[in-house]
């Protein structure tokens, strides 16, 4: 049995997680892969903790099993840790370091260093940065989701061009050009990482 490429996307309700899950899934289908996935709808979308799964090349159920994810895409660092148990050793974790503090009088938000260390402990290769700031600079916080999909793109078993095509199907036309821009930016960000960096989970191929 060939194992599927399993992706877990997580963050806070309202960050556009469903859109990323849709984008990656659509891209997989365009590439001719069987794809399974699952999303959070309803109550948790109101600023709660949100997760989505996309299983590229999968013919089984919608949920990624524990310690089987090849890629974690965390749009928020605390949420990244919450779902880090999905990661298998040697997988890649793309983590946004911009924190969104849970509302509440008594909540202390953990230290970022601790959070990133917890993710590293799973044996995954960590690619962490303030992608919120990048999205802001490129046009809007709203496109953080697609920007991070771009950062993750070189690790996926799907051509970048196909992901770009899937973007057409996923994003409303009036926002398309900004989304295309940040998707490209994300891909180039990962590609430009110095060779010999600690990313053992090397991006696949160098084409498109």
């Amino acid at each position: 049995m060939r194992k599927s490429f399993d992706v877990v996307i997580c963050g806070v309700g309202g960050q556009g997680i469903i859109l990323v899950s849709d984008l990656l899934g659509q891209a997989g289908v365009l590439a001719g892969l069987p794809v399974r996935g699952t999303e959070t709808h309803g109550m948790a979308q109101r600023g709660g903790s949100v997760e989505a799964h996309v299983r590229l090349g999968c013919v089984f159920g919608p949920r990624v099993p524990a310690a089987q994810a090849d890629l974690l895409l965390a749009l928020e660092p605390l949420e990244g840790v919450r779902y880090a148990w999905y990661l298998k050793p040697g997988a890649t974790a793309v983590v946004n370091t911009a924190a969104i503090r849970p509302a509440g009088l008594k909540i202390t938000y953990p230290d970022l260093k601790y959070l990133l260390e917890e993710i590293r402990k799973t044996g995954a290769h960590l690619l962490a940065d303030d992608f919120t700031e990048q999205a802001k600079q490129l046009g809007s916080v709203k496109v953080l989701n697609v920007l991070m999909a771009g950062v993750a793109a070189p690790f996926l078993p799907v051509d970048f061009d196909t992901i770009m095509k899937a973007l057409d199907l996923t994003v409303p036309e009036k926002f398309l050009s900004l989304n295309q821009k940040v998707l490209l930016w994300g891909r180039d960000y990962t590609r430009a990482r110095p060779s010999g960096s600690k990313m053992a989970g090397e991006p696949r191929g160098s084409h498109g």
């Binding site: 806070v12 309700g13 309202g14 109550m43 948790a44 979308q45 109101r46 600023g47 709660g48 903790s49 524990a66 310690a67 605390l78 949420e79 840790v81 919450r82 779902y83 880090a84 148990w85 849970p102 509302a103 909540i107 202390t108 938000y109 953990p110 917890e118």
Partner: peptide, 15 residues
């Protein structure tokens, strides 16, 4: 199977 360490909860809230 391992699970996440104890973390602050993030329940849904009014927008």
């Amino acid at each position: 199977f391992s699970s996440s360490p104890s973390l602050p909860m993030r329940p849904p809230v009014l927008c």
